[in-house]
Amino acid sequence: MTDAAAATDGEPLRVILAKLGLDGHDRGLKVVARMLRDAGVEVIYLGLRQTAATIINAAEQEDADAIGLSMHNAGHLTLAPRMVNAVKEAGLDIPVIVGGIIPDEDITELLDKGVAAVLGPGASTDEVIAAIRDSVPS
């Protein structure tokens, strides 16, 4: 495990990775899952067709440090804020990070609505890990 992949408590970072809704593009999410694993992150890969409820449930059971969502269907402005709100309503303090196809002009809106970080196509392993690390509350 690299230092970068450790949470502040010294334990490895635990990250949920999921696709929300109907979107079936899972290439990017799988690549990120393997990248993170190779870097020492503990990945809980939920895969396709998840709902806010199934993700919250997994986050609680797995004591996750962060939730990573991959979005390729232009539904992010609806679905990502909904996930953020669901996390809050569940009383959890877990950052929601979004990756995938997000037009530049939408990034500010997502951040304003509580998304912790937005990763675009071409993000490197280091950038992904840094985004998670910077988002996890210390």
Binding site: N73, A74, T78
Partner: peptide, 10 residues
Amino acid sequence: EWAEGEVGHC
């Protein structure tokens, strides 16, 4: 409910 946010997008 699955369709919300995805109607007509792709």
